[in-house]
Design a protein around this nucleic acid. Structure first.
Length: 569
RNA sequence: GCGCCCGUAGCUCAGUUGGAUAGAGCACCGGCCUUCUAAGCCGGGGGUCGUGCGUUCGAAUCGCACCGGGCGCGCCA
């Protein structure tokens, strides 16, 4: 697993106080200092000795195996020169041996996870801001599955809100509507509600009727929300995003499981009826310390449910499914609300899901707004990106059939958007810019895909020459002579650490960084280390296998991001 | 006003639980396609890590204050 166990084992044997986690190996700043470095600050703390003294003792007193060529110190660091061939062979053997599972730590083996993400209101075509939720959620799902979790993906369909009622009112004849009309209809309905209070009143009346269980009204809502949901899911499917369960909010307007919760709140003295007759909660009685968000209403005076009620009910429903890990991906605007829900549930001795928040994607002109039509639609972006990618593919892959070229172009477009979104930390606002988003050069998904296409090309040509694909079994000599090869190999070996960090952070951003770093190191290798024209059979074979291991590492990393590695582009 | 998030090169961002000289890309300048795909590579300029105190052997990273941006505090969800 860890290729540096050969280094850590003798150190642990010599210092019984130390544990494996105290030994942190990393590449030195310059490869001429050593092939790998150990820093001794952690050990020093534990052994209560100055770091340089520890470093000296490790260098002078510990007996390392034959794979360690030289041990030196540089202040608090111990630098090792290694038998690169031995380590390189082990790394490649591990990557090729584990294949699609390479980099997984198996931390989710035997565990179940439930992830709710996307949950866009079923009104109009999703914009790229909404899609950030979907991409973040989907990548976390992929990450958890990679780690061995059995994951269920849930999508909460908000099918009974005020905004939906307005949309329903505006669609007299749902059968004649298409999803593409919805954005305009939605916009117009909101504008009308703004101008005509009676129209907005009709919306509330409609909501009341569906809560009463009126079947015809329910049908009307479903017809519209289904149309919207199908359209939205189809766009998200282009990004490779799929769901296991669509849970309708309208199924949670009445729930007997809320009774014990309200009872628990009552016992804490946290329930009261407000001046408008609403059943409300005073969260200050539950430990909420601030004025803002202190009160939250559950039921209207007429007994109809408010969103907080439905959210509590739905959350209970999800939690009772018994997953070991429960996550929900939410825009940062939902922070307070989620805290409120969690407090209410906690008062009743129930747990809430762990939230993963993200900040908004902004336009140069300000924030996006579906109602005002100030948006960049996801489908619009994908179409434009695909068209741009197609130009390049058409000129570069002239031997491929048109459908094949089109499929590649679409995958490049998906890579561009997913990589651009997933590589930055979720809690950072990003400003959407058409020009840079459509650029496929530099730190981009297509750049990473390109490195895979080059690997595939080398291996294709090599196989054509020798008449057989390069073997996946690592055997015989394994020369590793250049820094370019070594740097690439140690990067590949670090994938499992990156994955572990991603799981801790609930974010695939480190994985995107890994893919980029690996692609860059490969490109250096590509320019410096000829494979087909290598100096010897052994070197050709070793380099071909380094290529395969690299492809496996990048492919696995891209897989977590929902991006396909490409054979050709 | 109160709470949460963010502030690193002209621009967009990395920077694992504090650790060796703060890294990429874009843009700019100079090289490289009879050589495994130039969606590429090599070299160059460019930084008071928002500001100020503090904790520490050591701070972009931790704490406090301030400044700037985002979000929230609804019979919207």
């Amino acid at each position: 697993m860890n290729p540096f166990e050969t280094l850590s084992a003798p150190i642990l044997a010599a210092f019984s106080e130390l544990e494996p986690d105290d030994l942190v190996f990393a590449p030195p700043p310059k490869l001429d200092m050593g092939d790998v470095a150990l820093r001794t600050f952690e050990c020093a703390r534990k052994l209560k000795m100055p770091p340089p003294a520890i470093a000296a003792r490790i260098a002078n007193e510990v007996a390392f195996g034959p794979d360690v060529a030289e041990v030196s110190t540089a202040g608090p660091y111990v630098n090792f020169k290694l038998d690169r061939a031995a380590f390189g062979r082990a790394i490649v053997a591990e990557a090729l041996g584990r294949g699609a599972g390479f980099g997984s730590n198996g931390s989710g083996a035997g565990k179940r996870a439930l992830v709710e993400h996307t949950s866009i209101n079923p009104n109009a075509s999703p914009h790229v801001g909404r899609a950030r939720n979907a991409m973040l959620g989907d990548s976390i799902v992929r990450l958890l599955r990679f780690e061995g979790y059995d994951v269920e993906v849930h999508y909460y369909v908000n099918d009974i809100g005020r905004q939906i009622a307005l949309l329903v009112l505006a669609c007299d004849d749902p059968a004649s509507m298409s999803f593409d009309d919805m954005l305009d209809v939605y916009r117009a309905a909101n504008a009308r509600a703004e101008a005509e209070p009676e129209f907005a009143e009709q919306g509330y009346a409609l909501l009341a009727r569906i809560e009463e269980g009126d079947a015809e009204t329910r049908e009307r809502f479903h017809a519209i929300t289904d149309l919207c949901l199908k359209g939205q899911v189809a766009v998200l499917a282009r990004l490779g995003i799929a769901y296991d369960s669509f849970d309708r909010e309208s199924d949670h307007v009445r729930d007997p499981r809320l009774e014990p919760v309200v009872e628990a709140l009552r016992e804490r003295g946290a329930v009261f009826t407000d001046e408008e007759g609403r059943l409300s909660v005073d969260l200050s009685k539950l430990g909420h310390e601030h004025d803002e968000g202190r009160y939250i209403a559950l039921l209207r005076s007429n007994g109809s449910s408010m969103y907080a009620y439905r959210d509590v009910a739905y959350t209970i429903d999800k939690m009772e499914r018994g997953a070991d890990l429960n996550l929900i991906v939410l825009g940062e605007d939902h922070k307070l609300h989620m805290q409120q829900i969690a407090l209410i549930l906690d008062a009743a001795g129930k747990a809430a899901p762990e939230p993963v928040y993200y900040a908004y994607i902004l336009l140069k002109e300000g924030k996006m707004s579906t109602r005002q039509g100030k948006v960049v639609l996801l489908s619009e972006f994908l179409d434009e990106a695909t068209a741009r990618a197609a130009e390049k593919v058409d000129e570069q892959c002239t031997d491929l059939a048109a459908e094949e070229r089109a499929a590649i172009a679409e995958k490049v477009a998906v890579a561009a958007i997913r990589f651009a979104i997933l590589r930055v930390g979720a809690n950072k606002n990003v400003v959407f810019d058409w020009e840079s988003s459509l650029s496929f050069t530099g730190d981009t998904g297509p750049y990473v895909q390109y490195s895979c296409a080059r690997i595939a090309s080398i291996l294709r040509k090599l196989a054509a020459q020798t008449g057989a694909p390069a073997p996946t079994e690592v055997a015989g000599e394994f020369p590793v002579e250049t820094d370019a090869e070594w740097a690439l190999l140690t990067k590949i070996a670090s994938l499992h650490e990156t994955v572990a960090a991603a799981v801790r952070q609930r974010s695939c951003a480190p994985v995107a960084q890994f893919a980029l770093d690996t692609a860059r190191l490969f490109t250096t290798f590509y320019h410096e280390c000829p494979v087909i024209d290598a100096g010897s059979d052994a070197q050709r074979n070793a380099r071909a296998q380094i290529c395969m291991a690299t492809r496996q590492a990048i492919e696995n990393a891209l897989g977590l991001l929902g991006i396909d590695a490409l054979e050709r582009m």
